[in-house]
């Protein structure tokens, strides 16, 4: 299997063009409509599964508890925590309860609700970028981009790889170099190199570079 894959032309049967419109090994592969767009969108955005599952579990627990209380009440046994009727009356007579506790609890609940609304409506971008490609959809973690840029920046700036720190966000790559004492670093050279690298990656959305060189060097690095 491995030999066949490393040598693509060795025993390639001619594709029967009757069933497939896309001939293999031609550059322009066209997937079924919308599939690649859907994948690209889904891979760069959070599914919001975690908060949804947590909420669903919490709701299940609350509903199960209320259901149990109702059953117990119907059987005429004493309630586990609160009988359904008491739930209702205490909710209606909320204003008679100590104002401080009710206000604090209400505000906390409202803030949690607001946070959930924000989570539900915000796009939830993942720390990833797309790389332009004709055959596949390529998603790459920002971490990988940063690590590759750090290597190039440290080479261009002639500093130790451990003294180059890069963080990549949605539209910007921040390169921070700590020069070795006595060896000056030209930020322009580093910036040019990093920008050229970024351009060669063909990231989507595009990422701009910013280079900062620390004022004080480090000895023995």
């Amino acid at each position: 299997m491995s030999t066949a894959l490393t040598d693509p032309v060795a025993d390639a049967r001619p594709a029967s063009s009757a069933t497939t419109p896309t001939a293999p090994s031609s550059g322009g592969f066209t997937p079924p409509r919308g599939v690649y767009r859907r994948i690209a969108r889904r891979e760069t955005h959070s599914p919001r599964s975690m908060p949804a599952i947590v909420l669903a579990v919490a709701l299940i627990l609350v509903l199960a508890w209320i259901g149990t209380e109702i059953v117990i009440d119907l059987l005429g046994a004493p309630a586990l925590l609160v009988a359904p009727v008491d739930m209702f009356t205490s909710a209606v007579n909320l204003v008679e309860a100590p104002a401080g506790i009710v206000a604090a609890a209400g505000i906390v609940v409202a803030v949690i609700g607001l946070a959930l609304v924000v989570v539900a409506v915000s796009p939830g971008r993942r720390a990833r970028h797309l790389i332009q490609s004709s055959r596949t959809v390529v998603v790459v973690d920002n971490e990988v981009i940063a690590s590759a840029l750090a290597r190039h920046a440290s080479l261009a700036g002639d500093v130790d790889p451990d003294n180059a720190t890069v963080s990549v966000s949605h539209r910007r790559a921040d390169v921070q170099l700590t020069p070795t004492s006595g060896i000056p670093v030209d930020p322009a050279v580093v910036k040019e190199d990093v920008a050229r690298q970024l351009e060669s990656y063909g990231l989507k959305p595009g990422v701009g570079a910013r280079v900062r060189v620390a004022q004080t060097g480090r000895i023995g690095a």
Binding site: T20, P24, P32, V138, V140, D141, E143
Partner: peptide, 15 residues
């Protein structure tokens, strides 16, 4: 080439 068909593919590169 091996399959004689092109399958859609996603490449995910992580560190």
């Amino acid at each position: 080439v091996l399959l004689g068909r092109s399958l859609p593919a996603l490449v995910q590169i992580s560190g």
